[in-house]
Design a protein around this nucleic acid. Structure first.
Length: 578
DNA sequence: GCCGTTTTCGGCCCGACTGTTTTCAGTCG
């Protein structure tokens, strides 16, 4: 049983307890536990009770339930709750404007169990008959059902960022006296965003009035003097919050989150006789405001270094901020080379020369061409003969270039049996080999793990490309024991890729952090298929930052000679040859 | 249900908006 499954059980328990009207702090305990477990880097299935209890938010009870889940595959408590309520009732909670109290009442008085039941009841006008409900609530439920059908769920970081950039640019033109700042999960660089939060610093309620008239607004969800909320045509919900200029820092801190980070910061404030809200940091005794203009001022007053937004996930950042041990995070400018891209030779849309020009324009100093190998016939993958011919062309081009290096590489398929898709003597000829899985995604965990471990052990493999194979919001990662892959990569000096494609971001932040902590070098690569695709490096860098990576953790921040020296093929030469 | 240089018992972040209320509950972030 993996961590995500355990996390889901606890999240379900929290929802069910909420519907039941249980003690809110008990509910929070399950929810906190669920959130922590979902991002916990080590597999809980292999941990004993003492180790489990060392996880923050996991006490005697939760540790026992985790053991029960691991050993029996189920939790008696979870099952008990499911006897009281049908499992489908949890879907009702995902509707905008429908919370636990409403679900409980719908279930108790109308026997509603499913989304279909709810829709029928709303259409029949049975909702409005309930105490505390009315025609408007009924209409809202129908709208929420419709919206859920059309664009359920979350949005890629890059999509949210584009939406935000356009909206902020428009707002800035319409209301030049007000400053607009995107905050929330977008500012933290989360791989997907549920909605878009924007601050309007120093504006008047007229700014909210303007906001709801934005051309891409599909529906106004709410509008007051300090807050407006709209649904955009893309399905992204955007919230605009008005704050006074003197609260700029406090509001940025508050609305950037994450929730557990903020709870912890507030807790820390309370311990010092201070109260923190979106308007500032206040002395409880005197009511005096002691900070709030800037984020740094708030953290400083609490004895903390300013925490970069990407680290605000309650994963040890406050302890590091307190002891001034926060890492100097990698930035896009630190990346000097790009090690994964395709050309017209396989499934790319631009040729070798165009990719080089694009990389130069992006401020890079070197790149590696890594087209697909033979097995990927769909992409016109290269066999040994074509690989060698392409390498010759790359080297000829390289000889003509000044102040820039082009490396000859390949993205070589890892076959289902773990062998490489090209002959060893061919791979040996190249400057860099990225090995990736592109087939037989459905192998079981043992097969897939052995397969990837074989690749890591192969002497000419330098990097594992998009190690989990996930496609965000589309495809689950393949079943790979990541802790074993990371251990093997560390042992063999193989780097793991952070693939920057917005729908991959693979490795993700928690795995990348674990790899880094275990001594594995990372590379941030674009996997560009067009010359414009190199801009994706931006997103890979965000993931690396969320993994607490410094430039030193990422091989392609080094100048080309240092980079090449760090590749596995150049540092595992047998001693007799040295 | 978790947790502890304030606490092993008694706390647990906090404010805005909506719809249904005639003073507030529910939802959201």
């Amino acid at each position: 049983m993996d961590n995500l499954t355990i996390a889901r059980v606890f999240a379900d328990v929290a929802d069910l307890l909420e519907i039941k009207g249980e003690n809110p702090f008990k509910i929070r305990a399950y929810r906190n536990g669920s959130d922590t477990i979902a991002h916990w880097p080590d597999p809980l299935a292999t941990m004993d009770e003492a180790a489990l209890r060392a996880i923050p938010g996991v006490g005697k009870d939760l540790a026992g339930k985790i053991r029960e889940l691991v050993e029996t595959g189920r939790s008696a408590y979870h099952q008990e709750l499911l006897q009281e309520f049908p499992p489908t009732i949890l879907e009702l909670m995902t509707l905008q404007g429908v919370g636990p109290r409403t679900v409980a009442r719908l279930h108790a008085s109308l026997g509603i169990r499913t989304l279909a039941d709810l829709e029928q009841a709303a259409k029949d006008g049975r909702i409005r008959a309930l105490k505390g409900m009315g025609p408007k609530k009924e209409a809202l439920i129908l709208e929420a059902l419709d919206e859920r059908r059309r664009h359920a769920g979350r949005h890629l970081l890059s999509d949210t960022a584009e939406t935000a950039a356009a909206l902020v640019a428009w707002l800035q033109t319409e209301c030049p006296a007000t400053e607009f700042i995107p905050v929330g999960s977008l500012r933290r660089g989360c791989e997907t965003c549920g909605d878009l939060d924007i601050l309007a610093v120093g504006g008047t309620p007229a700014v909210i009035d303007r906001f709801v008239t934005y051309g891409l607004v599909e529906r106004v969800l709410g509008q007051g003097d300090t807050k407006g909320s709209v649904l955009l045509g893309s399905g992204i919900q955007a919230d605009l919050r008005l704050v006074p200029v003197e609260s700029r820092g406090a509001a940025m801190q508050y609305f950037t989150g994450s929730k557990p980070h903020n709870i912890s910061v507030r807790d820390r404030a309370a311990g010092r006789g201070l109260k923190l809200n979106e308007y500032g940091l206040f002395d409880v005794a005197t009511g005096e405001r002691v900070a709030g203009d800037s984020e740094a001022g708030i953290y400083e007053r609490l004895g903390l270094a300013w925490v970069p937004p990407e680290l605000r996930e309650y994963r040890g950042e406050l302890e590091a901020a307190e002891s001034h041990r926060l890492p100097r995070l990698i930035a896009r400018e630190d990346v000097l080379g790009d090690l994964h891209m395709h050309t017209t030779e396989t499934d790319g849309r631009d040729d070798l020369e165009a990719m080089v020009e694009s990389a130069r324009a992006a401020g890079l100093r070197y790149l590696a061409i890594t087209d697909h190998s033979r097995s990927l016939a769909m992409a016109n993958g290269l066999d040994e003969r074509r690989v060698i011919a392409q390498a010759a062309r790359i080297r000829a081009l390289n000889d003509r270039l000044e102040d820039f290096t082009v490396l000859a590489g390949i993205e070589c398929d890892i076959r289902p049996d773990g062998s490489m898709d090209l002959a060893d003597d061919c791979l040996a000829e190249l400057d860099i080999v990225v090995a990736s899985v592109h087939s037989a995604f459905n192998q079981d965990e043992a097969q897939m793990t052995d397969r990837v471990l074989s690749a890591i052990e192969h002497p000419y493999v330098d990097v594992i490309g998009h190690p989990t194979g996930r496609l965000l919001l589309k495809r689950e990662p393949y079943r790979l024991q990541m802790d074993r892959a990371i251990a093997a990569a560390a042992a063999h000096g193989v780097a793991l890729e952070i693939n920057s494609q917005p729908d991959r971001l693979d490795l993700g932040d928690t795995h990348a952090r674990l790899a880094r902590e275990r001594g594995v070098k990372l590379v941030v690569s674009s996997d560009a298929h067009t010359r414009a695709g190199l801009v994706a490096l931006r997103w890979g860098v965000v993931v690396a930052r969320r993994a607490w990576a410094t430039p030193d953790d990422v091989l392609n921040t080094r100048p080309v000679e240092g980079f090449r020296a760090g590749l596995r093929r150049n540092r595992t030469r047998p001693r007799s040859e040295a």
